[in-house]
Design a protein around this nucleic acid. Structure first.
Lengths: 137, 137, 137, 137
DNA sequence: GTGGTCTAGACCACA
DNA sequence: GTGGTCTAGACCACG
């Protein structure tokens, strides 16, 4: 897997990596058990500092997107979350409010927002059982 | 108007102020021409440094949410985006992809996302002329 | 790159920095991707406070002249205006009216103004594609 | 004469007054010897603070656009300047460089700038002898 | 009274 | 090392 790092982007490099892995997982490009390239390979491919790659992997492990096994490498984790339903719901709603507010200030209508969200959802490979209760606790 | 600042939150204090003003405008609590409290008053209310308030107001002026007038105060600006349709659309879509991706990793379904967005949209007071009403969702 | 700061000038120090960077870009001295000196170096060179430099860089980023990347530095951005043609044109015309009016009160003729503008234009390195070549002057 | 004050403008109120007087003179709407309304009339018309009007008149007197006579009122002055040719030329060129630089960063071409300046010049009523030597000293 | 600018010095996040 | 944020306190310009 290759990462496309935009050196002129406003967000940090490590965050770009994190988001690209998350996107790949969400779109089914990466699946549970898949192995990520080594830190040094990622760093060489993307021409970035290995420490930055490590930071990205730490963030991904924190979010339970990957698991890091000593000497073996990093693997995509089966989807799970250790957050409570309430906490997860609060995060989702906060993101929704934020997005909708910014969209308002950009001059978009409610229909515009729904349309954009719809387009984004179409690119995601959701698990077969579409219930919000599948995540743990 | 009062600001609720969480000094322990991960996002910067000045950004919390920015978002709270944007939310108030989007919900119709603040309207074009309304005057914000003075820098000193906001700082005292929120128990933060006046310079931090100034930084928030600078960001709000940059986003055309308020105008700052020396000696007079800060006022909510009439909504007007000088940005290209293309640039605005790109921002909206990026936010949508980001939100949907994060929602996926939190274990939510497409229906959950649509529902959360719908709830958030219900709290916004959009301008009277509903521009592009496209078929969506 | 060195900055020449006049602490006694009527315009703010941070604005002097902003204008000097913009001039350097317009004259081709600085090009897209070029790295600016660090905040601390600029502050030391110009004998001003680092926060003042930061303020200048924030203004330059707002105007899309530079991008700031945490931990990496500040870089000249590729030229790209996300502003509406109408908004940009309004800004240009306002500047023209202002300049011409002030020139009149300084006792200059129309020819003087055109000559001065011509001299200034000769120092700018415009992009290769000469967009709208309208009949003028 | 009435002043149009834009409470949402970025520039100070007193500066708006100054510029409107200068524009009126440059366009021949106001001529040497014409009397301006009293401070209190201007303040009442524009719904602004009398002190702000006084500040504007002081600035206009400093620029030799008007003369203030005790008890008589303010009058448009015959065009003159106490600046040296060199100083005036420097001011003109600085304005030109500034305008051209900003125009560059807005994405305009040299032709665009010349055209905009030409339009602005067409609105000015220059004195019959179009020489830059008519101003004093 | 309002906001605008500048200084000095601290601590944190990113590469 | 880089920039990002915050505090504290000063002085000036505008209404």
């Amino acid at each position: 897997m290759l990462f496309r790092i935009d050196p002129l982007a406003s967000n940090p490099v490590f965050e770009q990596i994190v988001f690209q892995v998350k996107t790949a997982v969400a779109r089914g490009v990466l699946r549970a058990g898949d192995k990520l390239p080594s830190v040094r390979d990622i760093a060489k491919d993307a021409a970035i500092n290995p420490n930055t790659v490590v930071r990205a992997l730490e963030a991904l492990e924190r979010d339970r997107v990957i698991v890091r096994r000593q000497g073996a490498g990093c693997f995509i984790a089966p989807q799970s979350s250790d957050l409570t339903v309430k906490a997860r719901r609060a995060q989702l709603d906060a993101m929704a409010v934020r997005m909708v507010t910014e969209a308002f200030h950009l001059g978009f209508s409610a229909a515009d927002v729904r349309s954009s969200i719809g387009d984004a959802l179409d690119q995601i490979r959701f698990p077969s059982s579409p219930s919000s209760k599948r995540a743990s606790s």
